[in-house]
Design a protein around this nucleic acid. Sequence first.
RNA 1: GCCCGGGUGGUGUAGCGGCCUAUCAUUGAGCCCUGUCGAGGCUCGGACUCGGGUUCAAAUCCCGACCUGGGCGCCA
Length: 432
Amino acid sequence: MTSPIQNRKYANEITAANEGERVSIAGWVHEKRDLGGVFFLVVRDIGGFAQVTLIRKKTDKELFERVKRVPRESVVAIEGKVKSEQKAPNGYEIVPERMEVLSEASQVLPLDTTGKVGAELDTRLDARFMDLRTERTKHIFIIRSHVLKAIRDFLDERGFIELNTPKIVSAATEGGTALFPISYFEREAFLNQSPQLYKQMLMASGFDRVYEIAPIFRAEEHDTTKHLNEATSIDIEVAFVDHEYVMTLLEELVAFVYSKVADYPGLAKLNLNLEVPKTPFRRITYDEAIELLSGAGEEIEWGEDFSTSAEHTLGKIIGELYFITDWPCAIKPFYAQPAAGGTCNAFDLMHPRLELSSGSQRVHSYELLEKNIELKGLSADSFEFYLDAFRYGMPPHAGWGLGAERLLMCMLEIGNIREVVLFPRDRRRLVP
RNA sequence: GCCCGGGUGGUGUAGCGGCCUAUCAUUGAGCCCUGUCGAGGCUCGGACUCGGGUUCAAAUCCCGACCUGGGCGCCA
């Protein structure tokens, strides 16, 4: 006797056209409905749901009782015949001959997987393995996979190569954010906040077009719906181009990702209307943004960064994806290329809700870079490993970093960034 | 770090000084029912975060701790 798992089919691989065929399915007991003379068991797998129907009079007594007793969310394998049936959810049902209980689930369950009763995010994250069995959550992560694939397809097609830079780094940072210290043998090291310095060094190596999709770590003690202490960054760097070039690349990439997600059938489970943004995105300068804000009664002094409320106000005024360009040097990192009037060739890609990406044309002159580092109050000495790459032939270059989770949460209209990470790391949560 | 909320069965909630032996839904155990698809009906089980205090009386008011939601700051 062979195990039913061997010839396993997914729920969505079976149709009414398979009438009469003997098939095996395996998955989780999603629901049971006992109508007395007829009993329905809904089995869930990654493909969908399969209804198993047992008619009391026509079913082996022992099998009928076992199916009736199997606890919800247990893992079962069922072998049976496909029956075309109008009254069944997918137009077919399975009349079982055998059932193996591969793993019996304890009761009661920590969450409802059918969507009848909601659960708070904290409860869901505590039992994330089970939360991921729900349709909505499952599809968020399938979409996440599609988004990352779309990004790789887009960049690969344009001659980019994917590289990996270290996540364990020495003290030197770009400044700004706090780092997580770790113990590295007899020395102190840190988890990297961004691949910025390394991807720039690769420009000196002649790779020309690189990207990296990888975790970044920020030790900020913020506790909001849009921050994580471990996030995924999508970073690119391109040689022999300026900021305008990478802005165009960014808006086309984002529009491409939206279009791929819009095509995904499982999007229906998230109950939203996804509009693919039109390119090019609107561009406003930092100065124009200040004017718009002033018109809305929000005064920002030149040289200040935008507050959360200012971001929201701008988002409301503009109402779509947009770029803010020509930022003051003072509020951008040392590697942003200076331009006229105290501004630099840096940009932010904004969603009406929040910032998705920032990038710039980079400083490629060793002398200027060294000066900029000192101007920011950082020590050039600790950047020696980075600065060295600028001394022996560094082409002009530009790039950006895009937050994968932020893109997802905005695109899918999800309120809390934790929802789009499997096992989020935030100020309080280190488990699971 | 600051400012507001909230912690009631497994889950989601109602109650906000005495009518609480705590509501409802769902889940769990069991029973009835031959077409369910959030099935239906009946029976049963299951909870006031913890520690102080106020009061004749506390789930309810006060204080503290812990946990938690949101806004802001920081940051991306």
